[in-house]
Design a protein around this nucleic acid. Structure first.
Lengths: 201, 201
DNA sequence: CGCCATCCATACTGTTGCGTATGGTTGAAT
DNA sequence: ATTCAACCATACGCAACAGTATGGATGGCG
């Protein structure tokens, strides 16, 4: 009929496997990431898997490095700010990394961090990502005129909050979550007085 | 030789199993909590396990409820403060729940929360614990004279920070972690100006 | 002493999953 | 058209694990 690459005959490459595996990681965690389950999801058998990967560990390490590269690319992008826009950019970072924005991204993040608690390789990757993120965010605070020591404290608080809040279940605590999160953003970004006017931007 | 209860013949009861299971949960996570592994650790066979428990799920639910009860008992204890000591108590809570104080407790905490991301029963337990903790901590802030809305924000930030920071790997970021954590405690507890004098107590 | 309830060991079945071996299919180059 | 490399299916062995069935040991009590 046509020669357009409509369906490349389910020809899978390494990246397809990694992408699908990352989906499973987000949904089921590292322990639920089994090659036979993954193969079933891709509608092939594990004969295909062991063509593209040496073993399960090979896939896992590929997931890690790809995740790291994506996260580092993202943070340097998110922390670039035009002069004068640095404070607004901090608010933007908090907003972007808050759980609801990209639920999938946070699920991966949490799965990787849980993984890193028992796997040295994963821990090394997380360490790289954290260091890069902290340094990038710190630059932003410094550009806002925050003193060095305090810049370190605030960017650490920023990331700890972002990850921690996505671990909590607080449906019945406050009925105005939006305002709650806004207040917290103020505390992290620029709390000098309790009621900061953060009409940022 | 003697009739003292030196070795009760390895007679295990339900609580012994739950205690050992909680250890495994802390070390290996919910996915690594297998009944045969647990039995081996207790030097018995799973024949014993299935005497005390209906199935694996029975054990898991027992772990959850016991964890909840312990955590709720602990938080009401930690948030009791003599009049005038409320601010110091807030610092104490931050200190106590920071990862290094009781590494084991935090490992269990993180394991349960990761578990709760895929299990509704675990999620319900975490919701109970979170609500209790937030309300208790909120009372402390209110007793410090913090306005209601802000009290909600600060106690939420407190817990999110505590859990989040134990997920991060920041060895190479700052060489004075103690001071970093002190600064963050200030931001959470009483930041009105960036350099608050928190010579609390 | 003998009986019964408690507690555990042993021995099975069935399932899931990792990894390997080997053969089949497909498309592109010669 | 033949051939070869890339890609996948099938079929195997092996281990870990959930759960069941059943029998053995132990201790208190009538």
């Amino acid at each position: 009929m046509d020669s357009t690459p409509a369906k490349p005959r389910t020809q899978l490459d390494r990246d397809s496997w990694i992408a699908a595996a990352t989906d499973v990681l987000a949904e089921e965690g590292i322990a639920g990431l089994r090659v036979e389950v993954l193969a079933k999801r891709l509608k092939v058998t594990k004969g295909s898997f062991y063509w593209h990967f040496q073993d399960r560990r090979d896939l896992l390490l590929a997931i890690l490095t790809q995740w790291r590269d994506g996260r580092i690319r993202d943070i340097v992008k998110q922390t670039k700010a035009a002069p004068g826009e640095e404070l607004a950019q901090i608010y933007h970072v908090i907003e972007v990394y808050s759980a609801n924005r990209s639920r999938r991204g946070m699920m991966i993040e949490l799965a990787v961090r849980d993984w890193a608690r028992r796997d040295p390789d994963a821990a090394a990757i997380v360490a790289e990502v954290d260091e890069t993120r902290l340094r990038c965010a710190r630059e932003l605070f410094l550009a806002c005129g925050v003193p060095p020591q305090e810049a370190s404290s605030r960017c650490m608080l920023l990331y700890a909050y972002v990850f921690g809040v996505s671990l909590m279940i607080y449906d019945n605590f406050d009925n105005d979550v939006a305002r709650l999160k806004q207040d917290i953003s103020d505390l992290i970004a620029c709390s000098r007085s309790p009621r900061t006017d953060h009409t940022a931007v």
